[in-house]
């Protein structure tokens, strides 16, 4: 029974775009893009490498792709890999000194937080090319659908692009989970010195996972850009987005493959519901602008206190606990 569930979900995901109205399909696409980003973050987050700088990698993914397209006419098929490499280099430049000088825990989080602000400020400062705070729109190719430009006027095609990227993210999560590197990183998160004594290349292992995480996040940023055809320094970067990434993963569950995806579903639906609710109140003359973010923040705090393993982690624990009781 439980074995058939993934197949049923897989089938539903494949047929979804042909039977879903535009608005839910849009939500589905956004969920898949953010799930990819959250999964990418959890690749390193699950090993205690808490980055508050992933907004920077998303921005790099989006802006490098879009700038190469608008100014040099370079197709996103080349631009996206270039953006991913740029994110890897940026991750290396920031993480290598941190790991070499044993900057860990809160201090590492603070350094990465600074990174997300620096990248945002650079984008704003280069407004002549990036549009600054006003945002940036990739040039449309022809009538809006072009394989070469990775632009699709219909949501259905784009849905399959992001579905593929999301599956890729999960496959990478699974490969890491089954690899020797996971052993190494688990032990590093328990005790760096003892891991070094056991012959584990501590700095190297942490660098590898950080760069992998950054690269996948950049892919998420680039796809966001190609889909929305609009990006802004605060829309896909800065502290706001960096924190959103951490919160969503914590809500969904940090230590399970589907946790970040569940986190994306919960947080996106929550924001949508609040937004619609507040919009409808406004038509009745009640202005509660900003209330949505407050409630959202409050709920997240409650999640962190009462469900630290996230919704999926808690569910799995409960089910496993129940099963153990059955057999005893």
């Amino acid at each position: 029974m439980t074995r058939t569930i993934p197949f049923i979900i897989g089938f539903l995901l494949v047929v979804a775009p042909f039977s879903t109205p535009q608005y839910p399909l849009h939500l589905l696409i956004m969920i898949l893009i953010w799930s990819l980003v959250y999964t990418a973050w959890s690749l390193m987050g699950r090993f205690g490498l808490v980055s508050l700088g992933h907004g920077a990698f998303m921005s790099i993914g989006a802006y490098v792709t879009a700038l190469l397209w608008n100014y040099s006419g370079i197709s996103p098929w080349i631009g996206i890999p270039a953006a991913m490499i740029t994110a890897a280099i940026m991750a290396f430049l920031v993480a290598y000194p941190c790991f070499q000088f044993k900057i860990v825990g809160h201090y590492f989080a603070l350094v990465t937080l600074a990174l997300s602000e620096v990248v945002k400020l650079v984008i704003i400062a280069s407004r002549d090319h990036t549009g600054g705070s006003l945002g940036f729109t990739p040039n449309r190719e022809g009538d809006g659908t072009s394989f070469y430009a990775l632009q699709f006027a219909d949501k259905e095609t784009f849905y399959f692009v992001v579905l593929g990227a999301w599956v890729l993210g999960l496959v990478i999560w699974r490969l890491v989970d089954k690899s020797m590197m996971r052993y190494a990183l688990d032990s590093i998160s328990e005790d760096e010195d003892a891991s070094a004594a056991a012959g584990i290349h501590v700095t190297g292992s942490k660098l590898k996972i950080t760069m992998l995480s950054a690269v996948l996040t950049a892919l998420g940023g680039a796809l966001y850009c190609q889909y929305q055809m609009f990006i802004g320094p605060e829309v896909i970067g800065g502290i706001g987005i960096s924190l959103q990434i951490v919160f969503a993963v914590v809500v969904g569950g940090l230590y399970t493959m589907m946790g970040p995806t569940i986190g994306a579903i919960i947080t996106l639906l929550m924001t949508e519901i609040f937004r619609n609710w507040i919009t409808s109140l406004r038509t009745e003359g009640i202005d509660l602008a900003g209330l949505d973010t407050s409630i959202y923040g409050l709920m997240l705090i409650l999640f962190i206190i009462f469900l630290p393993k996230g919704v999926l982690g808690e569910l799995i624990d409960r089910l496993a606990g129940g099963r153990q009781k059955d057999t005893s």
Partner: peptide
């Protein structure tokens, strides 16, 4: 670095 010293045959 430590991990290469392990490779040289020194275990701690």
């Amino acid at each position: 670095p430590p991990h290469q010293i392990v490779e040289l045959g020194i275990a701690h």
